[in-house]
Structure formats: structure tokens, C-alpha cells
Write a protein that binds this DNA or RNA. Structure first.
Lengths: 246, 246
DNA sequence: CGCACAATTGAAAGTTATCAAACGTTGTGG
DNA sequence: CCACAACGTTTGATAACTTTCAATTGTGCG
């Protein structure tokens, strides 16, 4: 119920850096994935890359949605606000993630960088032009949005029906899954967001997040060597706790 | 934290009724909207309509997603379950709404009819074939999924950050908005779902929903002439309460 | 008409929020 | 390089909202 006021520069003031898509090797989730060389070239022509520092507002809820973005490095938080300042994170973005899918004429949420971040920016109008002649691209977008919707529904289950401990465990697991490599499950997780960001993502307060993490540490399920980094020391127990199997 | 066990027949046992799309005049949100006559004909050929009674399970979470549906009459509830039976509604569907958008190979949620309901069923495989040759259709789907994602994010804000009273008011408003006609805002709302369905949609218990509705009645903001029907008697106040402007 | 189920109401308990203070960490400037 | 300020995190005590448990009332249907 507290109100907030955050000072953050906006992305408008940053000059784009030219860098063609061909050299971009971000994950398979990106928009560019599964496009032919020719298509990629066309996509490249309507995009420009830019670099921003920590705490920069990328888009603002309700602003006209003129640009879409792909995160190529760093991380981003997405959130919605109530009139009195209460905040709900709708997601965190990492390299390969797409920003701006869910919009009509205006953005449905705000976005801010969590650390120094690189973005690939697309003009929305030009992208829509391209969609008309590149069916592959539209299909790719449809799959990406569908995936996001599934994740959003999982988050509804979390927000509406899970306890604080289940929420925190589920959150850590989702970070681990997203970062998972071919070499098995990831136990060392990067936490670029603060406790209050996590709280606003899980529908909890900063204090409850902190207390819950302390509990998990005492149970030897996780370790926090340094802030910004977390290690899962008992994955199975974490999985069980995330769904209330205890 | 209570567990549930519901007995409901499944839709598999119902024989389809043949009825071409041309005669179907459901709302602009439907999949068929914005298709040419020819396209509509093609869509018609891969669909069949069916009628089910109240309380029938249409799809089951985790089942292979072989069919998609359009609701043409009645209403449907969508939900996800935790292992111990806790339930989260992810949405309610009314005529014109599409069922099955958010899925990979399996359904991400279960669906059950809230009353006698008519559905238009599409084979997923055939629909995907059709998508390849009807770009309009794919674009339409993309817009529909994007809209759903925006709604899902609004629901996250509700579940994570709103109070019980704000949740209930927001819910009533969303029903009113969805039913809104050209003749202005709708104040008489149909409530085909039970209190516990509403609770599971808002992350509340049956009792809290009931208490909150009673409060709103005492404040002369709503009236409930008969169960299954609700009237908004002070729309502005309801709007203010929904966002905590009080 | 009465049974079964849904909705309402009440009292008590519990989880999480709020308020407050101490502790750590980070980054800056002397 | 250390000291200090600013900020984020942790911890504690209390309060509040919602849940849980229980009982009553109301509604729909056979």
C-alpha cells in the first residue's frame, strides 16, 4: 500500500549502435530464430541495437507502442502500477527474450533495465509490414506469445493459490529452468533484481521474501554466497516445496 | 488447502452436430471473424459443432491438445490445479471466446462448462494446415493471443496486489465490460459461476467472496435479485473501489 | 415436500503485512 | 586506503486481513 517514486532516465536519450543481426548469437527464443538468411537480412534492416545502463526506463505503461525490443544482454523487469503506487512485476527478461509482445496501441506495462543491458530495437510499423511478407516470422511470434501466455497462467496459479514459501521456491526454480544448459540443471543462479522486485513479482513484501530466503538457507536448501548470486544446494527439496508436497 | 473431487462426464462422448460457419453469428472476437467467404468455407470444413450440458469437462490439463474450440453459446471455466487440489481459475469464456490458444503439445489447463453450452470444434492439426495457407487467420490468432496476454497481466496485478474488495469489484467490472453493448455500459450481469468459482478466480475463499458481495450490497453498489444475476447500481463507486481510489 | 447443495454468517486462528530498528554492502570522497 | 553516507537487506514485534472451522440459512430439484 505504499507509494513509490523512482527517478530513472529514459531510453529515448540513447543513440542506437549499428550491429547486424548476422553477428547476433542470442538464444533460440529470440525473434530472429528460425529465419532464413534472406529473412534475417530484412529483419536486420528494420532494427538497431542500443546499450543502456542500470535503472533505465525502456518503455512506459500507456505510452504509444512504437517500438519492440529483443534483449541481447543484461536483464529487464516488467511491471504494472496501481494508482496508489502498488506494483506488480509481470516478468523478468533475459538475453533472447522479447519485449513488447503484449500490446495494442499502447504498452500494457513498463520496462526497466536491472543492470547494464543491450537491446535490439524494432520499429513496430516496419515490423508489421514485414509480417505481411514473412509468414515464418508471424508464426514465430505466435509461438512466442503462446508460450508467454502459458507462463502467465502458471504465474496466476502462483499468485492466487501458493503460500509465501511455495512462491519463493517456484521463483527460484523458474530461474534455474530458464538458465538450464545442456549440461544438466543449473544450481548457480544470478539474481540481478532486488528483494523488493522479487516481492512485487510474487505478490509479497520485501520482508517476507527476505525471511523466506533466510528459512531456506537455514534448511540448507539454498546458499547465498553473495548478493546477486544464489546456489541451490537441495534441488529435489526445492521442487517439492514449490508445489506444496510437504 | 482443501482437496476436491468432482465427477463430470467428458466431451469425448458427445456426437458433433453439423452446422456451417456461415450461419454462425457470434461476436467479433471469434476466430472466424475477419475472414473472407472463401476462407470461412475452408474453416467450416475442418470444424464441427457440439452441444454439452452443464458441468461437462471439455479438456483436461496435460491431455494432448488435439482440438481447439470456439464457444458459441453458454459459458466455460478454465482452471489449473495444484497436487493437493488447490485450484486457480485462469478465465471464464463466453460466446465468441476461443478455447485452446495457450498450449504446446498438451493443454495447459482444464475446461468445464458452467451451463448448457455450444462449442465449435477444430482439429488442431487441420487448423495448423490451414494456417499455412491463410495468413489472415494466423494474424487473427496472433491478435487474439496478444489480447489474452494483456488480460492475463491485468489478472496478475489483481491477484498479487489487490485487496479482496478491489478484487471482487474488478471482477464485476470486467464482466460488465465484456458484455457491454453499443447502448452504453451494462449494469445487469449474468453470473453463471458459483461463489467458489469466483473465489478460485480471484485468489479468495468462497466465504470471503460472499462477505464482500454482502458488503457491496449494504453499500448499495450492487444488487443480487436472484442468484446467477447481478445488477450494478453505482457504477462509478464500483470503478473507484476496483482500483483502491477510496 | 423434503433432500442436497450452495450461500451466508459468526468466531477464532494463522499467515503475511506493517512499522521500526539494526545490520551489511556499495560506492564515493577525503 | 579508509571513513562515511546512502541504500538495500535482515530481523523483531505488532497488527490486520483473510482463512479456517462451524453452524445456519437459503435455493433448486426430484
Amino acid at each position: 500500500m505504499r507509494s513509490r517514486s523512482q527517478v530513472a532516465s529514459t531510453v529515448a536519450s540513447h543513440a542506437p549502435v549499428n550491429s547486424p543481426c548476422e553477428k547476433c548469437n542470442i538464444s533460440a527464443m529470440s525473434l530472429c530464430h528460425a529465419l532464413s538468411c534472406d529473412d534475417l537480412q530484412q529483419l536486420s534492416e528494420i532494427s538497431s541495437s542500443l546499450e543502456i545502463s542500470k535503472g533505465v526506463t525502456i518503455i512506459n505503461e500507456q505510452d504509444p507502442a512504437n517500438y519492440l525490443f529483443n534483449v541481447t544482454a543484461g536483464s529487464v523487469k516488467l511491471y504494472k502500477l496501481l494508482p496508489d503506487g502498488r506494483r506488480q512485476m509481470t516478468g523478468f527478461l533475459f538475453p533472447g527474450d522479447f519485449l513488447g509482445i503484449a500490446m495494442n496501441d499502447c504498452y500494457a506495462y513498463s520496462a526497466e533495465s536491472l543492470e547494464d543491458t543491450k537491446l535490439c530495437r524494432f520499429s513496430r510499423a516496419k515490423l508489421e509490414e514485414l509480417l505481411k511478407i514473412l509468414p515464418h516470422l508471424e508464426n514465430r511470434l505466435l509461438n512466442m506469445v503462446s508460450n508467454e501466455l502459458v507462463l502467465a497462467q502458471d504465474q496466476m496459479l502462483l499468485l492466487g493459490r501458493k503460500t509465501a514459501k511455495e512462491k519463493v521456491c517456484s521463483f527460484l526454480l523458474s530461474l534455474s529452468k530458464r538458465a538450464k544448459s545442456e549440461t544438466g540443471p543449473v544450481t548457480k543462479i544470478s539474481l540481478p533484481m532486488g528483494r523488493s522486485d522479487i516481492g512485487d513479482y510474487l505478490g509479497l513484501t520485501t520482508e517476507t521474501v527476505s525471511r523466506t530466503l533466510t528459512n531456506l538457507k537455514k534448511m540448507n536448501i539454498i546458499a547465498i554466497p553473495t548478493n546477486g548470486m544464489l546456489e541451490i544446494t537441495n534441488l529435489q527439496e526445492l521442487i517439492d516445496l514449490a508445489e506444496g508436497l510437504d
